[in-house]
Computed example of a mutant assay.
Amino acid sequence: MNLDNIRIVLVNTSHPGNIGGVARAMKNMGLSRLYLVEPRQYPDEQATWRAATAADVLDGAVVTRTLDEAIADCQFVVGTSARSRNIPWPLQDPRACAGRMAEASVHEQVAVLFGREDRGLTNEELRRCNLHLNIPTSEDYSSLNLAMAVQVVCYELRMLLDAGRLPASEDAEWDTPFATRENMERFYVHLEETLVQLGFLDPAAPRQLMTRLRRLYSRVRLDEMELNILRGILTETQKFLPRDSATVSSPGGSE
């Protein structure tokens, strides 16, 4: 994929703040080529304010009078559409469409068109596209802010670009080894002793308390540092408890 070959094209945007929001969404995901087709109010301080630190994307924006000017050198054009049309057209969701755009962007110029805030792209504008893109939404509320829609599409492109660098599993970047079974058993003994001393656990009627606590900590998976922290809390707690309280002699002895 070559993000430099992918441009975001906004057609006849009515609110300058939305242009700034789009610039920010693009920069978040690493895209920089913004085309503005006859914006109603631009440049404008509201666009600059909404762009935050993405002013460079705004500064590099290309303003054109017509859509044809904005996509004249493009080989693959995608148009976002919020509703079905009378004549069926190839249609994909953002994830599937991102794959098509990524493939084309290696050697071709790609444009993604976003229409007016109130009514999107016209049928004539959509007929200029090779593919239509629809973002699935709840039937109860299908309206998407322009910057939000651009963010969704740019995010899917970013995920494809970073696919090889994303962690393969939830533990890939963990900074401390997970606790060994031996150390976990020592923790359970320590925990049970402390609960008995506190009077929270009655050895005569344990009611599966330790079993449930074992299940809890097993589900969380403690690392060695977290385990040491918990053991330290238990040790400090015991300093304030009477020394003649009953203690357990083996792991899970009250189960």
Rank of each mutant, 00 (worst) to 15 (best):
121 L>C: 05
9 V>F: 02
102 A>E: 12
208 Q>K: 12
92 Q>I: 02
36 L>A: 10
37 V>S: 04
236 E>Q: 09
45 E>T: 15
204 A>I: 07
170 E>C: 13
19 I>P: 08
50 R>I: 08
230 L>V: 08
99 G>P: 10
76 F>E: 05
7 R>T: 09
180 T>W: 00
70 A>P: 04
223 D>F: 07
197 Q>K: 14
172 A>D: 09
3 L>P: 11
177 P>E: 03
225 M>Q: 14
118 D>M: 13
203 P>N: 03
86 N>I: 09
188 Y>I: 06
205 A>H: 06
199 G>A: 07
198 L>H: 12
174 W>P: 01
63 V>T: 05
21 G>E: 00
182 E>T: 13
134 N>D: 00
133 L>R: 05
145 N>T: 15
123 N>S: 15
4 D>K: 07
196 V>D: 06
16 P>L: 02
204 A>Q: 12
62 V>N: 05
220 V>M: 05
56 D>F: 08
56 D>M: 10
57 V>L: 02
189 V>C: 13
227 L>A: 12
49 W>M: 15
67 L>D: 09
19 I>F: 03
205 A>R: 11
120 G>K: 02
216 L>Q: 03
178 F>D: 02
48 T>R: 10
78 V>H: 03
144 L>A: 10
108 E>T: 08
70 A>Y: 03
221 R>H: 04
91 L>F: 07
218 S>I: 03
84 S>I: 12
133 L>G: 07
240 F>G: 11
82 A>F: 01
56 D>G: 11
131 L>W: 05
86 N>Y: 00
51 A>G: 09
151 Q>D: 08
221 R>K: 11
209 L>G: 15
28 N>Y: 02
100 R>T: 15
249 S>H: 01
192 E>A: 11
58 L>W: 02
37 V>A: 11
175 D>R: 11
203 P>A: 04
163 A>D: 06
117 E>D: 08
255 E>K: 15
14 S>A: 14
139 E>S: 12
147 A>H: 06
18 N>F: 03
122 T>G: 05
131 L>S: 04
40 R>Y: 11
105 S>A: 15
49 W>C: 15
123 N>T: 14
73 D>L: 12
36 L>E: 03
69 E>H: 03
202 D>P: 09
139 E>V: 08
111 A>Q: 01
41 Q>G: 06
244 D>P: 10
47 A>P: 06
79 G>A: 08
237 T>E: 10
138 S>R: 14
115 G>A: 05
206 P>E: 00
179 A>R: 06
179 A>Y: 04
137 T>M: 08
44 D>P: 08
169 S>H: 10
121 L>Y: 01
32 S>K: 12
98 A>D: 10
185 E>W: 00
58 L>F: 05
144 L>G: 13
176 T>M: 07
241 L>T: 04
41 Q>L: 10
170 E>G: 14
172 A>M: 03
251 P>W: 00
113 L>Q: 02
90 P>K: 09
58 L>D: 03
106 V>Y: 01
37 V>F: 01
129 C>R: 03
190 H>A: 12
119 R>E: 01
236 E>D: 09
205 A>F: 05
158 R>M: 11
112 V>F: 06
84 S>M: 14
155 Y>A: 13
30 G>D: 01
10 L>P: 14
226 E>T: 10
89 W>D: 00
203 P>I: 02
228 N>D: 13
126 L>M: 12
